[in-house]
Design a protein around this nucleic acid. Structure first.
Lengths: 203, 203
DNA sequence: GGGTACATGTAATCAGTTACATGATTTA
DNA sequence: TAAATCATGTAACTGATTACATGTACCC
């Protein structure tokens, strides 16, 4: 009967694509025709603020996407012989299908400051206060960057997706600033280190 | 003269520790003596909400930390012969040193919903509205979980680090709910797909 | 004593990161 | 034309994820 691993019925490619794949496809969409270097530059002042990745990923992933027929690459004849990337029709379809299919997951924050706070039993109250001050400063700095970026949008693009994504960044950073500022004011109560509790019998 | 790769001068171990290392050390601190399984269970209802990782990581990483002398492991004599983990003095120091040394980085959100929104040029306005509805539902669900967790804290632990970390989660989810709800109301203006701009000459 | 959920671990694969290496263009 | 910096790529490594495999305790 039906095969165990069936390819998606619509035009999607057989090999499964990672998040990185869609990041690259999306970046190409925004700027095609473009080189890997240009894509990285674009990322660094847009999605890079909430989705970091090293430059080498773009080279690796774009090569893979070319093999899969989702990107076209044209190589410059002389000079730097750069690879110029464009979306193929299949690439465009794959990107659209992904964007149009939401997953119901909320992403991790992966905030090492929160991790430190959670484990703050390990340190003194002074250390925690210092942590809070550092986090506060870092988020204030980031907030400042976002405000600069926001100032560059014309009123006409107020409701464009890019501007709205930036808006979410602004909200997030403002709430972080509030949060850590509150902790600088009123540091947490550090509970005592655990006494060596004895293990219960195996259940 | 000084060696090229010098170990940290204080009691810290020579091999560099990853974030995962500190996650495991921290979890052990919260629950020692504990098995890998117990640590994962603890993570799933605390830091797992903002820092996911698979269970196998704990087995791999705890073995490594034992080798480095940061954890002690004692093996049950019979039955499941589980490995019982505790912090060594060196482990305690390594954890404290890490918690007390803030890095000035803000973590990535890695939110695939934002990524989709950023690339929403690829889809129709209806698709974007559907995306927003899904994200809204997902964040509302998560917010609900947090509220349940919060209800379990006694008033006396209002200011404990765990409660405060949860507080930051509550704030974050509330702001996400606001954000996506706003988009459901007023979807973004999708700009036209890029026309095939011609490449500028190399600079 | 047979089924089910609990618990523990390993192995193979895959993706992400860091480090290396070099060439092209511009500016002084 | 030398120095700086812009730009591009690859290779080696490391870490994370998935899939596999099995054993134990409990419940009926």
């Amino acid at each position: 009967m039906a095969s165990v691993t069936s390819d998606p019925p619509d035009g999607a490619p057989s090999a499964r694509l990672s998040m990185t794949s869609y990041v690259v496809l999306g970046l190409v969409q925004e700027r095609e025709p473009a080189t890997a270097y240009e894509l990285k530059a674009l990322a660094d002042r847009s999605i890079g603020y909430f989705w970091e990745f090293p430059r080498s990923q773009i080279y690796a992933e774009s090569a893979r996407l070319v093999e899969l027929g989702l990107l076209d690459e044209e190589r410059e004849a002389q000079g730097r012989r750069r690879r110029i990337l464009t979306l193929t029709q299949a690439g465009r379809r794959a990107l659209s299908a992904w964007v149009a299919t939401p997953d119901d997951k909320v992403g991790d924050l992966r905030d090492s400051g929160l991790l430190r706070l959670f484990f703050s039993r390990a340190v003194s109250e002074d250390d925690v206060r210092r942590l809070a001050r550092h986090q506060l400063a870092a988020h204030q700095a980031r907030l400042g960057e976002y405000e600069q970026l926001a100032a560059q949008f014309e009123p006409a693009s107020e409701r464009h997706p890019r501007r709205i994504v930036l808006e979410s960044g602004l909200r997030y950073e403002r709430s972080c600033v509030e949060f850590w500022a509150g902790l600088v004011e009123t540091p947490p109560v550090i509970p005592p280190a655990r006494s060596g509790r004895r293990r219960a019998r195996s259940r």
